[in-house]
């Protein structure tokens, strides 16, 4: 086995990253939301573990949607 295998390489897992605090603020302002209203992702989720995200972080997913092309989706780590 050459390179380390990461689940982030899997076709089913969309590209994702942790948003910085400024970006989170901007996002919440844009959609008039509080963090609690965002869709959730569990702290025990393998993607969260792989990214090293902490509770309260917001993760941005770049979904490849057949309808909208690229769609952004956000989940807050709980």
């Amino acid at each position: 086995m050459a390179a380390k295998r990461s689940i982030l390489d899997h076709v089913l897992v969309p590209k994702c990253r942790i948003l910085s605090e400024d970006e989170v603020e901007e996002l919440l302002k844009k959609y008039h939301l509080t963090k609690e209203q965002l869709p959730r992702i569990l702290e025990s989720d393998p993607v969260v573990k792989e990214l090293g995200a902490k509770k309260g972080d917001v993760i941005e997913f770049v979904r490849n949607s057949p309808i909208a092309g690229k769609a952004l989706y956000y989940r807050v780590v709980v």
Binding site: I7, L12, V13
Partner: peptide, 23 residues
């Protein structure tokens, strides 16, 4: 490991995360 899938969605959620399960 980038393409192999299972049709058990709970298993996908457990191994590849909730976004993969959604797909």
């Amino acid at each position: 490991h980038t393409r192999t899938i299972s049709n058990d969605i709970h298993e996908i959620a457990e191994v590849l995360g909730i976004e993969a399960a959604r797909y």
